[in-house]
């Protein structure tokens, strides 16, 4: 079993009227199966309202499945006694950088998690230093979060999770409110944690460029996993992605258009370099 495993997970938002009768049921997550290997970088794609955020909250036991079972590091999230372990093992970073920083000084915020876990003071300081270093924010340790850029704030939030020494980080649209520079900062910090520390990453996003470097992609729509596979496999299905209100990176789109126009390009082109190489190959053949 992988570090995260979901079996037929269903989550329903139930709306009740004033008398407590069920008014409407909205199935936000609909029979989802996941199996995430430890150390993987997994991307969950989906448009706004596709259920991806609701799923993310399940991974952290902020919500528990209405039906089905979800295991984080072998622990069933539905069991009340496992909640703390689940949250420690699978830390969570949210979309809005301002609304997840609790303290008014960077290092105090990073220490918040370990404090809650009852980690001894000296150990907290050690962890705070290490976590801030791992996201390149050590020199801002005494700054006020209000004076940081969006990308820096998100890196502080990531450090706050790292200080709890998780095995896995779930990031729920961490770049949606950032500018391109901030987006790059956050992405490279997350990739580095994945590469150097072997942290399992689950990145929830609707930016296609961020999914290209993932190990595995799940695409969600209407609460269901509608596509899954390697980036190459997913991005070769341009039409299908568009049906799910998504798109593909520009290089992939161009390759797709060129193929449609008759150029013999190979499948699954994701990056500019790949496309340039392919085009050169075609061009050489054509010139002959």
């Amino acid at each position: 079993m992988g570090i995260i495993k979901a079996s037929k997970v269903v989550f329903e938002y139930i709306r009740r009227d004033e008398e407590g009768n069920v008014d409407s049921i909205q199935t936000a997550v609909d029979h989802v199966d996941l199996d995430v290997k430890e150390g993987d970088f997994v991307v969950i794609l989906g448009h706004n309202g596709s259920g991806k955020s609701t799923l993310a909250k399940q991974l952290n036991a902020l919500l528990v499945p209405s039906e089905g079972t979800l295991w984080v590091d072998g622990k069933d999230t539905k069991e009340r006694k496992n909640v703390r372990d689940v949250r420690r093992k699978a830390g969570m970073v949210f979309q809005n950088p301002d609304n997840q920083i609790i303290a008014s000084v960077v290092e105090e915020d990073v220490g918040f998690g370990p404090e809650n876990l009852g980690v001894p003071t000296e150990e907290i300081w050690k962890r705070v230093g290490e976590s801030l270093t791992s996201v390149g924010m050590l020199k801002f340790r005494r700054h006020s979060p209000n004076k940081l850029s969006g990308g820096q704030k998100q890196r502080v939030a990531i450090a706050g999770v790292m200080a709890m020494e998780p095995k896995c980080i779930v990031l729920d649209e961490p770049t949606a409110m950032l500018d391109p520079k901030g987006r790059k900062e956050v992405l490279s910090a997350v990739h580095e944690l994945n590469r150097k520390k072997g942290i399992t990453v689950i990145l929830i996003t609707h930016y296609m460029e961020e999914a290209v470097d993932g190990d595995y992609i799940y695409v969600m729509d209407e609460g269901k996993v509608v596509m899954e596979g390697l980036p190459k496999e997913i991005f070769s299905k341009v039409e299908e992605l568009k049906r799910h209100r998504l798109d593909v990176p520009q290089a992939t789109l161009l390759a797709y258009e060129l193929k449609k126009a008759g150029l013999p390009l190979s499948e699954g082109i994701l990056t500019r370099q790949e496309l340039a190489e392919e085009l050169e190959r075609c061009y050489v053949n054509y010139s002959k």
Binding site: Q250, A251, L254, E257, R272, L275, A276, E280
Partner: peptide
Amino acid sequence: PEVTYLMEDLKARGMAIDGDATTVEEAK
């Protein structure tokens, strides 16, 4: 834009491509 860089890449690979495309359509 990504495609502008692609155009430069192609020029650098010695392909006689013209124009400075900035959109997918132009590049195509």
